[in-house]
Amino acid sequence: MEALTSNDKFELLKRVQKTTDICPIHGIPKIRMPGQPAFCTECQKQKIAEREKKTVLDAELYWQKRKTTDVLNRDSIFDDSDLKKATFQNFEAPGQEAKDNWNAAREIAYQYLEADTHFNTLFTGLPGRGKSHLALSMLKAVNENAKQPMSCLFVSVNELMRLIKDSFNYSGDSRYSEKNMIDLLGNVDLLVLDDLGSESSFKRENREASEFVQNVLFGILNHRNRTIVTTNLNSVELSAIYNPKLISRIYKGIKDHIIKFTDKTPDRRGIEF
């Protein structure tokens, strides 16, 4: 639509008709355009101001969600797409250990609802028991119920390292560049690093994590104090793979926040043949 010229506006003003109808809110006569209902100019100004305010608030909410609650769905990195469905409600808990761990995860998630709660959580034990399922369930619970919107992120460590290494092949800036990933993972309010140690378990020569992997993980964890880690390894095995400075970052506030699975809980991915 073309903008009205000064002459057009003048012609419109000449067509304005005053009425004897008084606005009950502002106590002034309403006006009308030919063939249109009468209206109060002050009421119209208020409506325009309210629409503009709503537009601003909607925009603020949109950008707030992009920086907080939308992060989990938009930026998480999975190596198993089926895991995306995980919730506390659909967690299968065959046996007392699994039930106790389910309750412990819920209690810790409740503590993470407070933004000033600072400690790491470690899921450890045998594979296929539900560590990743419970870790993601915790993130979803915090994402949906936190008193103030938080950014939550789930990242497979092995897939993260693969994506970062793939980014070396791009001439321009990649979304998965080392810097971008360290910035993103280092600054979200609550982070899950899933299957820590798997990125080293595929190496044939030794189990020690590469300097590159350790530098990336250190860059992420160095300034964090709210991280959930899942691993199939015990403390001795973790210490053999990672340097002491990185281990100390993983163990921040971890006392009383360790959830362990043993052979008391059956492997949910096990196949008999």
Rank of each mutant, 00 (worst) to 15 (best):
S156V: 13
R162D: 13
D194F: 10
M150R: 15
A146P: 10
E178H: 02
N158Y: 00
A209M: 01
G128S: 08
G130Q: 14
F218P: 04
L136Y: 11
L134V: 06
R106K: 14
V188C: 03
D194P: 11
Y110A: 14
K165F: 06
I182N: 06
I220D: 08
E107Y: 05
Y112E: 01
S171K: 12
E107F: 02
R162S: 12
D173H: 12
E211C: 07
E205M: 06
Q111P: 01
E114V: 07
Y170V: 03
L193Y: 08
S132M: 04
K179I: 13
S177L: 09
N180D: 10
S132P: 00
N143G: 05
N145K: 10
N187R: 12
N215Y: 04
E208V: 03
I220M: 09
G130L: 14
C152K: 07
R106F: 12
L113C: 13
L153W: 08
F168I: 03
N215T: 14
L139F: 11
D194M: 07
G128Y: 06
S151Y: 00
E159F: 02
L217N: 10
M161V: 06
R106G: 12
F168Y: 15
V142G: 00
K179T: 15
N206V: 03
M161H: 12
R175S: 00
R129W: 04
S151F: 08
A146L: 07
R106S: 08
F202M: 05
D166V: 07
V188F: 00
N187A: 12
A146C: 08
S156E: 15
N187W: 06
M161N: 09
S200V: 06
G125S: 04
E114K: 15
L134F: 09
S201A: 13
M138V: 02
M138G: 03
E114L: 11
Q148V: 13
F154Q: 06
G128W: 05
I220Y: 07
L185N: 09
T124P: 00
A135P: 04
D173P: 04
E178P: 03
F218V: 01
E159Y: 05
K140S: 04
L139K: 11
